[in-house]
Design a protein around this nucleic acid. Structure first.
Length: 230
DNA sequence: GACCAGGCACATC
DNA sequence: GATGTGCATGGT
């Protein structure tokens, strides 16, 4: 019918964003281990505050599995103070590190040998590692094709009427994973691009001035049909 | 001084 | 299963 489907919309949005903004070079980190610690530290926190905390860990030369295993939780909390929620995040980092040592002798290489789906289930059991954190770890530290969904992603999709307000994390992730090739570098860029748009363009007003998606018009998508039914 | 930021767990209904 | 709340710093 030549009718533009959700699948097409999901793909076209990526093309618009990539063309307008180019590669984002995520995740900003020197190692997969730094990605993981950053993923925990950035929970509901601006990246600037996370960078400061990571800087303290680096300067103290404790940004390694072994050092973070040995460090006293209280000291760790103090080091990451700038990232906010520092007591709970120190606990969460400790939980992950213990998981890493108990199951993989403290080796990320061994951990990532595991099948992606199995590893995802196991990581979700770690207290403090939820769906977004686990997918960030798998994609950006492990190079496994899992799409990362965050608050920006949901906001942008809502604005463009591609999901309903009550869509779950899994619903939104499926929207991408069912409609795109499982391409790690594309998933990498796509999520980073959505974060960029969410940060700088998708604020209070639908499609702020300058947003690369301002001219994006989905055609006869599911959202419009839903509106007609209401 | 309010509001927000690359969430998550836990309590309660 | 949905909804509310605590966790806390630092920038706008």
């Amino acid at each position: 019918m030549g009718r533009r489907t959700t699948r097409t919309n999901v793909r076209v949005i990526y093309q618009h964003l990539y063309k307008a903004l180019g590669p984002q070079k995520w995740w900003p980190a020197d190692s997969p281990f730094e990605v993981i610690i950053g993923a925990i530290l950035t929970q509901n926190t601006s990246w600037k505050n996370v960078e400061k905390a990571l800087g303290v860990l680096k300067r103290n030369k404790v940004l390694t599995p072994r050092k973070l295993y040995d460090i006293e939780e209280k000291r760790l909390a103090e080091a990451i103070r700038s990232s906010g929620f520092f007591n709970i995040k120190a606990k969460r980092i400790k939980h992950f590190i213990r998981f890493l040592f108990e199951n993989y002798q403290g080796s990320l290489e061994r951990m990532f040998l595991e099948d992606g789906g199995c590893l995802r289930e196991k990581l979700l059991e770690v207290n403090g590692v939820g769906p977004e954190t686990v997918d960030s770890i798998l994609l950006y530290a492990g190079g496994k094709p899992f799409f990362v969904v965050d608050a920006y992603t949901k906001r942008i999709l809502l604005r463009h009427d591609l999901i309903s307000d009550n869509a779950s994390y899994h619903d939104i992730q499926a929207l991408f994973m069912d409609n795109l090739e499982k391409d790690v570098s594309m998933f990498n860029e796509y999520h980073a691009l959505l974060v960029y748009v969410g940060k700088y363009f998708c604020k209070k007003i639908p499609c702020c001035e300058g947003c690369p998606l301002k001219r994006f018009k989905k055609k006869r998508g599911e959202g419009q049909q839903k509106r007609l039914l209401n």
